[in-house]
Design a protein around this nucleic acid. Sequence first.
DNA 1: GCAGTTGGTTCCGGAAAGCCGAACGTTTAT
DNA 2: ATAAACGTTCGGCTTTCCGGAACCAACTGC
Lengths: 265, 265
Amino acid sequence: MNRHDPSGVLKTTAASLALVDHILELEGATMGELVEATDLAKSTVHAHLKTLAEYGYVVNIDNEYQLGAKFCHLGDYVRTRKDYYRVAQETVSWLDSESSMDADFAVEEHGRIVSLYGDLEFANSPRFLIDGSPFHVHTTCSGKAIIAEYPETRVREIIDRWGLPAATDDSITTEEELFAELATVREQGYAENSGEAVEGFWAIGKAVKSPRGEVYGSLNLSGPAYVIDEETRATQVELLERAAERFEQGVAELYRTQADEANEG
Amino acid sequence: MNRHDPSGVLKTTAASLALVDHILELEGATMGELVEATDLAKSTVHAHLKTLAEYGYVVNIDNEYQLGAKFCHLGDYVRTRKDYYRVAQETVSWLDSESSMDADFAVEEHGRIVSLYGDLEFANSPRFLIDGSPFHVHTTCSGKAIIAEYPETRVREIIDRWGLPAATDDSITTEEELFAELATVREQGYAENSGEAVEGFWAIGKAVKSPRGEVYGSLNLSGPAYVIDEETRATQVELLERAAERFEQGVAELYRTQADEANEG
DNA sequence: GCAGTTGGTTCCGGAAAGCCGAACGTTTAT
DNA sequence: ATAAACGTTCGGCTTTCCGGAACCAACTGC
């Protein structure tokens, strides 16, 4: 558990939420396992689980605690909250159909990367998670693409907060490497990963921005590294860049029609 | 807030989770609004929000607190957890393409109905929610289809817990009505809703079960009521029944291949 | 420029609430 | 039948949370 600075956080709530993280990490856990994982008394864990269950966040099936369907519900709400997410979804499915690789759209939040659309089976598999949280910015091409657009201070805040732990042997682990990499990303207009997040996987990502320059997130393509030769590589990069254009045009159009409607009303 | 029996639940965690529900209900809220909604001190709300933010459950953008992308992440995990969910997803997209109406798959958890696959825009819209929770079993056709398969004691537990609040003027509100309706559902093999969940909407749902008779959830079709005449109605019911068969065959096949793999290994 | 508002943040003392430990009920396995 | 593991309840010690007030920053309208 690499929890930052716990000043001012409510310990009770934090303990409950940590249990959720543990259940995710263990992909379902019995009470004994949770007692083991948290170093709390059995009765305490029980109270937390009861509370979480009361609100639908965990369920107990066959002596195993699992995350509840309420997360689907809340997740869907979050996904449809921002109007441009719909554009992202359309772009991802276009990109996915055009490309031979897997497409997804990811955003940065609190210094971590969450994949919103795409092959969720892979992108959100607990196998690749660290302490129940989504990916780090420095190990994913989405993350690199996004923070390459951020001011240096904000990048430093993020690595201050989460550190630069390695996901594979090829991961970036020092500030110098990271900032050098971000310069490269800015120069070539997209980010690239060769096994830095997942062994044997190759991926590219490109940040998409609003007309005012705010970063929405990153469009990505990923797949097994062995299929990538110089030619397919160039094709995929071109596809990705076309997808980014589609997205930004889609968002611009969205805002135009919204402005029109506002003027009419 | 219709929270059952709060014996043994941790008040601090409960307060934090209630805040999440409030943010969902208000579709994003400022601290002032949350203080208003919860009757807690500003400093207290602040502490809760800080804790939730620390774990990625809420974010603050432009003086407004919103649910975090972590819910997408956790939601995706829950969705892909059960192996038969993939079958459900395939069935829903088949049903959706065959039918002129909207298809979805819903499950019951803790006495409430959550839609897992389908047009999430509609099914999970906060407009139709009560105290931040998913639908009630007695107002949705999914709910009726599912609990029609349950023993009476379990049905009574659920209505004991959540009551029978009306969603529209046509909602079921008494135990007698409900049990009579469930008998009808069992008789005709599917459940039907005419504006009982959402004004002006018509829907049908059919429970799908494992070979051993456990209820997985319910496949549903829904749409505006005015397009439904006797003929389309019959077609939709037939489609739904074919979809249920497809699902149950799909699951049976899944378990067969799993058993084969286990025997080989 | 200033007073008023709204959103967010910090600090401290009193009081409430969570944490622990132990004991009991229940189911599963040996 | 015995044991082990999971889940549940209860009461006391003490931790920690809640509330209030005061403080900063940003924005609004006069």
